[in-house]
């Protein structure tokens, strides 16, 4: 539970601020949908449609609160190989999304796999903003400077410039977490979003309840943090992003 939880909560809060939101899950773990109360046994998703040569956008769902989302779908390992190697050509994502002709006001939030592959690279290039979810820990600091993803991003100035960083799962009681987030702040003062998402039991419980925290516990600390995050994003940018 990292980026999927963040995205689901963010989408809900943007929606509550009267924004038009579309969430697309590009992660093969297919977990995002569960935050929106989709049946666990329902295998549908855009990837499954692509494999079956059906139009991918038929896989759109709308949750009971009115957010449009598109689950990845349940596919096998062979199908996944096939999907990435054959079905998805270069510029597939941008072509498909521009064909759909969404309005400029719409927030399209892509849940991108942390592993670099054909699809995630397309998503990163397509997005207007990239939000990287980091945890305030020494491991993350290491990866921040030296990992395949970080190197890929820092070698492309255009990608590097549209990166934002969000601190997630900060343990309120951990001294080290506070210190590490201070270090991150000093390293990337302009790219770090000034809202931190804490580690909160409410988040785990909300997921277990198949919903997001602002519905499960609207007055909890993290619900408020996600609200602040959504407002912050709305103030600074007013469309599309990827995480």
């Amino acid at each position: 539970m990292g980026s999927s939880t963040v995205i689901a909560n963010l989408a809900r809060n943007l929606h509550e601020l009267d924004q038009d939101v579309l969430v697309i899950d590009l992660k093969s773990n297919n977990l995002l949908r569960l935050h929106f109360n989709m049946d666990w046994c329902n295998p549908n998703g855009w990837a499954l449609n692509v494999i079956n040569d059906q139009p991918w956008f038929n896989a759109g769902f709308k949750c009971e609160f009115g957010i449009s989302f598109m689950p990845f779908g349940r596919i096998t390992y062979e199908n996944k190989q096939c999907l990435f190697n054959e079905k998805i050509e270069n510029n597939w994502l941008s072509n498909q999304l521009s064909m759909a002709n969404f309005s400029d006001k719409k927030w399209i939030i892509l849940n991108v796999e942390s592993e670099l592959n054909n699809l995630s690279i397309q998503a990163l290039n397509y997005a207007d903003k990239i939000i990287r979810v980091i945890e305030p820990q020494a491991t993350c600091l290491g990866q921040f400077y030296d990992s395949i993803q970080s190197n890929y991003l820092s070698n492309n100035p255009s990608l590097h410039d549209k990166c934002l960083y969000l601190i997630n799962k900060m343990m309120p009681l951990s001294e080290l977490d506070h210190e590490m987030s201070l270090v991150f702040k000093s390293l990337i003062p302009n790219q770090l979003i000034p809202v931190k998402i804490h580690f909160d039991e409410n988040i785990k419980e909300a997921f277990a309840q198949k919903t997001t925290v602002n519905i499960y516990a609207p007055n909890s600390g993290t619900a408020k943090q996600f609200r602040t995050l959504a407002t912050w994003l709305m103030l600074h940018f007013s469309h599309k992003g990827a995480a």
């Binding site: 909160d200 039991e201 007055n219 909890s220 600390g221 408020k224």
Partner: peptide, 15 residues
């Protein structure tokens, strides 16, 4: 001003 309370159980509550 807004602050956050943390219960022993690990639940955070904004107040």
């Amino acid at each position: 001003t807004d602050i956050t309370l943390r219960k022993k159980s690990g639940h955070l509550l904004s107040a």
